[in-house]
Structures are given as structure tokens and as C-alpha cells.
Design a protein around this nucleic acid. Structure first.
Length: 317
DNA sequence: ATCCAGGATATCT
DNA sequence: AGATATCATGGA
């Protein structure tokens, strides 16, 4: 191919694709969406967010009523809109969730926060690693795993690594995994390896889980005793398996629900959650079930708004 | 130093 | 079935 053709090809790859977000139903705030603790591998560089979708390095820039998208390799626009869940009518969802004064206040303070549609394996691995960690540490662990086991991707000045396939992790050494910062000695490393193996062997089939009900998919994910309990399962179901009714409960959500909706919970649970005490499975179920019954089919969105609003208010992030 | 983090599991009563 | 003990680490 002649030089002119290559230049044209190169320009086409690096030209910014425009995704329109001017309609209120497609509103999105990248800062809120990437820093709300649902995903751990996007970083803000200058005025853009850089991360990986599939095997491509992607840079997203927020502009008035639109997003500018650039990537190291051509990506169909549908891949971007799917990842960002721009197919969710955010305006309608938030309207449906705004059933009380407290929640309307929350929505008003952080409009444009969206749930993403993540890769299930990366999401599962991330939240298995999340146990006993704060968000910045989760980010570091997931980054370490990617750097050590993922594929190197470069694009201009940017360098990053894809998240390693389950097959790679299923063959990784425990000590090498543990040295990425996983907790509890080699225990979490073993859990991650076992989960990777189950995925490779088809025992965990994300496609099938997407087509299953929330309750069945959750029971399946929790049935292996490899580090996936209530909380991790709910996060994976919400952030990567289309279960928007999932209502994950961590210490922040428990505390905030106890504060805002104390009339709906047992008094002893309210005081326990307010003090940040750890929850029993029964406590977890009570708060999570409340979330689903109060907010309905989009309870997961409500959970994420509550979580991020509280953390911003407390100055944690 | 002490406390805590987007908890899960094995082991009791 | 529901409470309790244990796991074990970087950072504030």
C-alpha cells in the first residue's frame, strides 16, 4: 500500500468518533461514572478518560452534548454505546426511582451517573479482589494483575494492558498472583485461579447467566465457595450481567440506607449498620430486599447513586 | 499505635 | 439456621 493510503488509514483510526448525548435520556457524566467504584481500570488523563474496551485503548472526552471517542484500533460505535449503557433511558430510570424526597435530592446532586456494561470475567475478578480493600487499593491490585498477565497495548504516548483472559489466570502461579497485592496470603489467589478454571471449563457460563433470572444466577455464582458471596455476586450481576434489580450492600450502602430509610428496617439493624459493624447474611438480605422492594427493577441504579453520593459527601473520593 | 476497608467462609451453638 | 471466629494488609 502506498504511503498516502497508510496515512489516510492512520488518520481514520485516530479521528475522534462522536457519540451524541444531548438527549436527556442519553445523559452521561464520565467523571461520576468512572470514579464511582464500579470499575477500576479507567484513569483520568488531562481532560479525558483512558481505559480499555476489549483489546483497544480508548480515550473518552466529555463535551457539551456529546462524547469524543478515540481508540488504538477501530471500534464500532455500538461497542462504545453498549459499554456505556447509553441504551438505558437514564431520564426515565431516575424518574422511576425518585419515589421519595431523599432520593430526589441525591439524583439532583449527581445526575449523569451511569451503570456500565463491563466484561463479566474482569468484573468478577475485580470484586473478588475487592474484599478487605479500599477503592484505590483495588485499582492497584487490578492494575498489577493486568500489567503482569495482560497484553501490552500502546497507542501514541499511552501504555496500558488488557485484563488477562481467564485461561491465563487459571495457569498463573499462586505466588505471582499473590504478589499483585491479593489479600489473605494465597487464599484469594487460589480463589481467583479456581474461578478462572471454572470459567475455562464452562462451569461458569456468563452467557447462560445473563439469560437466567437474578435469583438463579446469583445462587449459581455463590455455589462454588471460591470467594463469591452475596456482595461480590450482586456486584457482578449488576455491573456485567444485566441484572439491574441487584442491590449490592457494602458498609457504605448499609450505613446510608440505615440513615435514610430507618423506618423500613429492624431497629437493631439500623443501629448496627450506622456503627459500621459487619453484616450477617440475614442483615444483608434484609437491606438488599428492601432496596429491591422500594426501588423496583432498577434498584441497582439506586444503589449506585446512594453509594457514590454518600462517599462524595464524606469526602472519601 | 489503632482502626478500617465495595466480605467470605469455616466452625461453633 | 443463625451467631462467631478467623483470615491478614496497606494506609490514614
Amino acid at each position: 500500500m502506498e504511503a498516502g493510503g497508510q496515512l489516510t488509514q492512520s488518520r481514520r483510526d485516530h479521528a475522534a468518533m462522536i457519540v451524541k448525548t444531548d438527549d436527556p435520556s442519553r445523559a452521561i457524566d464520565l467523571d461520576l461514572t468512572f470514579s464511582c467504584g464500579q470499575v477500576f481500570r479507567w484513569t483520568k488523563i488531562e481532560d479525558g478518560w483512558v481505559g480499555i474496551i476489549g483489546d483497544s485503548l480508548v480515550r473518552l472526552q466529555q463535551r457539551e452534548g456529546r462524547l469524543l471517542v478515540q481508540s488504538s484500533a477501530p471500534l464500532p460505535k455500538s461497542r462504545i454505546t453498549s459499554y456505556l449503557r447509553l441504551d438505558d433511558d437514564l431520564q426515565s430510570i431516575l424518574k422511576e426511582l425518585s419515589r421519595d424526597r431523599e432520593f430526589r435530592k441525591i439524583v439532583k446532586s449527581i445526575p449523569g451517573l451511569r451503570i456500565l456494561r463491563q466484561d463479566p470475567w474482569e468484573c468478577l475478578a475485580s470484586f473478588v479482589c475487592s474484599r478487605n480493600c479500599r477503592v484505590p487499593m483495588i485499582r492497584r491490585i487490578v492494575r498489577n494483575i493486568s500489567q503482569r498477565f495482560g497484553k501490552r497495548v500502546t497507542w501514541g504516548d499511552y501504555l496500558d494492558h488488557s485484563f488477562p483472559e481467564a485461561e491465563i489466570i487459571s495457569q498463573a502461579s499462586l505466588s505471582e498472583l499473590a504478589s499483585c497485592g491479593l489479600r489473605y496470603g494465597r487464599r484469594q489467589a487460589r480463589e481467583l485461579k479456581e474461578l478462572a478454571r471454572l470459567i475455562c471449563e464452562g462451569e461458569i457460563d456468563f452467557g447462560a447467566l445473563k439469560d437466567t433470572s437474578y435469583a438463579e444466577a446469583k445462587a449459581r455464582l455463590m455455589s462454588f465457595d471460591h470467594g463469591v458471596g452475596n456482595k461480590v455476586a450482586d456486584c457482578v450481576l449488576l455491573f456485567s450481567l444485566e441484572k439491574l434489580e441487584s442491590f449490592p450492600v457494602d458498609v457504605w450502602v448499609a450505613r446510608t440506607v440505615a440513615e435514610l430509610y430507618h423506618d423500613h428496617l429492624r431497629p437493631d439493624l439500623v443501629s448496627k449498620a450506622a456503627r459500621g459493624r459487619s453484616l450477617t447474611p440475614r442483615d444483608y438480605r434484609e437491606i438488599s430486599d428492601f432496596g429491591r422492594s422500594h426501588f423496583g427493577r432498577y434498584a441497582g441504579y439506586a444503589q449506585e447513586y446512594i453509594y457514590h453520593w454518600k462517599r462524595l459527601k464524606e469526602g472519601v473520593c
